[in-house]
């Protein structure tokens, strides 16, 4: 229990026994080290979270002051509102559109960029370059590309003789268009992490495989993917959470429209809290989103962690 008894104490210059015991208790010393981050987390994460849960149970006036305790009424109103159901559906679809395709795309790019050929550094830089772009800047670029009257997308379509599409104005296409832009934005980050994972795989495994003379496909399935699984697991969890929390590109590209088809939950929270001044409803949505992400992440750990191979 007492570290000082087994090892030379790092604090032995202090003579007072009281002080010495206090300082050398590993728990307290540990807490002391954690203090800075605990304070920061507390101020910027834990307190706001508790406050959100608290606010979600109240009727709030337009200036954000809680008025009356209403219990779960905010939640009941949400479940009954068709607007919230549209939001939930949009969020779910958005996650489905962006995460699997984004991961597969980044994985393919990472596998390509992992080859040792001349000039590969150029391609690695290119593939990861979207990471250096802010969401705002890239959204504006995509906005111009999607512009129905002057954008490149419609020029391409009319170039191959197809009729024009109102990318961001047609409820059928809007969510997919935003999803496509998001995949492009997120690929850089996912690619970089996956490439790092690939480079960490022990080369001896591949050498043994070469001696055994197995096919490339076999190597991919039996060596690369299992060895990459911790990294893959990490990027899946992170991408999923990111995708649930998408805001910037929605705000710039569609503002939740048309007909709320891209009104994902985070955007809906923003609108309710800062445009409509319904802080109670916004807090309730935030709490629901939190638990939704929590459940999905826990499920991911429960269901897929067994398949993750740690060295």
């Amino acid at each position: 229990m007492n570290l000082a008894q087994r090892e030379p104490s790092p604090f032995k210059t202090y003579d007072e026994p009281e002080r010495r015991r206090w300082m050398s208790s590993p728990f307290l010393a540990g807490m002391l080290f954690l203090l800075p981050s605990l304070v920061l987390f507390g101020v910027f994460l834990f307190y706001p979270m508790m406050r959100t849960i608290y606010l979600s149970l109240y009727l709030i006036d337009t200036q954000g002051e809680p008025l009356v305790f209403v219990g779960v009424e905010n939640f009941i109103n949400l479940f009954q509102s068709s607007s919230f159901q549209t939001s939930a559906k949009a969020t779910g679809l958005f996650v489905l559109y962006t995460v699997p395709i984004g991961l597969i795309l980044a994985l393919v790019l990472a596998l390509l960029a992992n080859e040792k050929v001349k000039g590969i550094g150029f391609f690695r830089t290119m593939f990861s370059s979207t990471m250096g772009m802010s969401v705002a800047a890239s959204s504006v670029i995509w906005m111009f590309m999607y512009n129905p009257s002057i954008g490149i997308m419609n020029r391409l379509l009319s170039g191959i003789g197809m009729s024009e599409v109102q990318w961001l104005l047609d409820p059928q296409f809007a969510l997919m268009s935003v999803a496509a832009a998001t995949i492009w934005m997120n690929t850089g980050f996912t690619f970089l992490i996956l490439l790092g994972g690939l480079q960490n795989i022990d080369q001896q495994l591949y050498e043994s495989a070469r001696v055994a003379g197995v096919s490339d496909w076999y190597k991919l399935r039996k060596i690369t993917l299992p060895m990459l699984s911790p990294t893959l697991f990490f990027v899946t969890v992170v991408s999923l959470i990111n995708s649930f929390q998408t805001f910037g590109q929605i705000d710039i590209l569609t503002k939740g429209g048309p007909m709320e088809s891209t009104n994902v939950i985070v955007y809906s929270i923003y609108k309710d809290a800062f445009i409509n001044y319904n802080v109670g409803s916004a807090s309730a949505q935030a709490v629901l989103l939190f638990f939704c992400i929590l459940i999905v992440t826990v499920l991911q750990f429960k269901l897929t962690e067994r398949k993750v191979h740690y060295q």
């Binding site: 906005m143 512009n147 129905p148 009257s149 002057i150 109102q166 961001l168 104005l169 569609t254 503002k255 429209g257 048309p258």
Partner: peptide, 16 residues
């Protein structure tokens, strides 16, 4: 013409 919700898009559509 459905010009969306963005003022600049609509103005660009007129100017073009």
């Amino acid at each position: 013409y459905n010009a969306g919700q963005n003022w600049d898009d609509m103005r660009a559509a007129f100017q073009s």
